[in-house]
Amino acid sequence: MDPRQARTRSALRDAIHTLAAAKRIDQVTVAEVSRVAGITRDTFYRHAATPVRLLADVLGEELDETLRAHADLPAHSDSTLSVFDESERDLLRHVAEHATIYRNSMHPRLIGPLRDALTERIEQALAHHLDRHPHIAPPREDGITPERHVRMLVAYAGAGTVAAIEEWLRSGDLDDIDAAARTVIAASPAWWLGRS
């Protein structure tokens, strides 16, 4: 990305963070984002179709960075902790850090593109984990292809995690990230967790 595009992208990131923290994301306009970012509407449309899509992209990029640190988890933990303990905490730290933005994107669930961005990142991480450790998955049922088997396992876990995050956001208090992470992990099937 050339320096000018990088500056524009940074200005858009700052603008959408500011506006999405101030009011509901479905009320943020292209004109507002453009004004706060100091760009034209045409420039905005070169980077995103809508403010909601821009927010989903920006938070998605941040999630990519957060989850990248946990890309190569082992199949099994050397302790009673789950292999996902630290990655779940980091995911919830990201959500807590942007709690106002996420809450301003819920009516009562996360707005579609934002929910999709969160779900897709979690599913990609889980699919990567299963790809690296296929032996941890439960036996496949007859009539389900191996690919569908993996997709169903990953979809269930990803959507469940996002639904738990939405409930956590609705509760008001996000101070105890460890307790929230342990609760999400407790709801996960044992075969995912890799505990010793």
Rank of each mutant, 00 (worst) to 15 (best):
S79N: 15
T80P: 02
L81W: 14
V83P: 15
F84V: 04
F84A: 10
F84T: 07
S87P: 11
D90Y: 03
L91R: 07
L92R: 00
R93Y: 11
R93T: 11
H98T: 04
H98V: 08
Y102M: 08
R103D: 03
R103C: 13
N104V: 04
M106C: 11
P108I: 14
P108W: 07
P108F: 10
P108Y: 08
R109F: 13
L110P: 06
L110E: 09
L110C: 05
L110I: 07
P113G: 11
L114P: 04
L114E: 03
R115P: 01
L118D: 04
E120L: 12
I122T: 13
I122Q: 12
I122G: 03
Q124S: 13
A125G: 00
A127H: 08
L130A: 07
H133V: 08
P138H: 02
P138W: 03
P138N: 05
R140P: 01
R140L: 00
G143D: 04
G143Q: 05
I144T: 07
I144V: 13
I144N: 05
H149F: 02
V150Y: 09
R151N: 07
A157L: 06
G158A: 05
G158K: 00
T161Q: 06
V162F: 05
E167T: 14
E167C: 08
L169V: 01
L169A: 08
R170T: 15
L174I: 02
